[in-house]
Design a protein around this nucleic acid. Structure first.
Lengths: 218, 218
DNA sequence: CCTCAGATGGACTTTGAGGTCCCATTTTCC
DNA sequence: GGAAAATGGGACCTCAAAGTCCATCTGAGG
């Protein structure tokens, strides 16, 4: 009642470097385990063990499992966007898209198609179960698609893509093909269907390229 | 040891009409509940209640929850294939594909994009958790794609599609777009991205149509 | 109409996972 | 250096969900 209360109803607590590091270790362990086993099939004891922490620390940093999962959704979203930004923010050509495709396919083929996309798998598991997680995931997908559509905009502005190309729709279509590809690859334990789906989307984008030679699409 | 044993190592048990009906009720309840809540988040008590049965009946018909889930995978697969067969087995034209697309979109829009595809959601939830379920789902996807590719073959044989169209790849791409569309629609709780993804795939197939007028694709 | 295996109801047991608590240790700030 | 708060360890509690068991009911075949 007396002293200064600097407001900020949340975050009242002091937090140290060590605390931050522990929180990070927990999220990192949750990230790895839940990618492989799924969210619901991963227990807090699994996470505690993998992160070399204890129950009290889990509950010190997160109110309950749901909060941890929500934090993970944001954590993983940030990781994916960071990775994708690196690959997409300088996208200016069709061959850049192909390189992007190849990187994703190669990464997935190392697992023989298993595990799928960290965001997509959470989306299907959580969307009908946790509205906050769903809307957070939805925002991440939107940001991801924007990285793509920004690149397509640059390609259109520079005259590579025809004016009637719709970067937003193309980006959504490409993201759909990517996520569907991940899913089919996961079911088949084989990266091939992911390649086919992505190549279909790339072919579609290609059909909007301005033809230097002027000859028709085929 | 004495009487006739008609072989059939499984199914040794006699089974009555009533037993079949109960088993069906259980699967039907599991199907509905697990579509909405997901497999892991649905309890046997939920299913027991929804199916108006009892614990002993659940365990009379299925060894454990995993067996029930595996049976559900086949049950749901059979339902989807039956539905899809009805819509695809007479596919002979591009407009037939459009009608098929419209039916799927309309059904999904009734839920505002929620729940997604019954097969796709199980695929992501179970693939890294139950190898038998995964391979069963994979087979169902293959059968579904075959319904599509058979239709595309008919279109190619009748001269609607160009000879260089690859029905198998087109079918895989379309299935990828469909599954990715379901996933994005589920995350967004909006059917729009599913439409965009499917339309992209249909445009791609369209680009293989033989042009009656002979003019280039665009 | 009797028998017996299958079908059913539902109480009971077990297990595992989420969540709580308390006390010890470390860090921060005065 | 010492008080106060953050961090940490881990035993313990609780409860819900999976799974067991047995008494009873049903109905088809002899």
């Amino acid at each position: 009642m007396s002293d200064e209360q600097v407001a900020a109803p949340t975050n009242r607590r002091r937090i140290s470097q060590r605390g931050i590091a522990t929180r990070e270790r927990i999220l990192d362990a949750a990230n790895r385990l839940m990618l492989v086993r799924g969210v619901n099939a991963t227990t807090l004891d699994d996470i505690r063990e993998a992160s070399q922490t204890s129950k009290s620390q889990l509950y010190h940093h997160f109110a309950d499992k749901q909060e941890l999962v929500r934090a993970l959704v944001k954590y993983r979203g940030a990781l994916v966007l960071q990775r994708e930004r690196a690959g997409l923010e300088r996208l200016r050509s069709f061959s850049g898209l192909v390189r992007w495709r190849n990187a994703l396919v190669q990464a997935n083929s190392l697992n023989n198609g298993k595990y799928g996309c960290g965001l997509g798998s959470m989306a299907l598991e959580l969307s009908d179960q946790d509205e906050q997680a769903r809307s957070s995931l939805s925002e991440t997908f939107a940001a991801w698609e924007k990285l793509i559509s920004d690149g397509l905009h640059r390609m259109r502005d520079s005259g590579l893509l025809r004016q009637d190309a719709d970067p937003e729709k193309l980006a959504t279509g490409l993201m759909g093909a990517l996520q569907g590809g991940y899913l089919l690859a996961n079911a088949a334990h084989d990266v091939a269907p992911m390649e086919v789906a992505l190549d279909m989307a790339l072919e579609h984008i290609k059909s909007f390229l301005v033809q230097p030679s002027g000859e028709p699409t085929r």
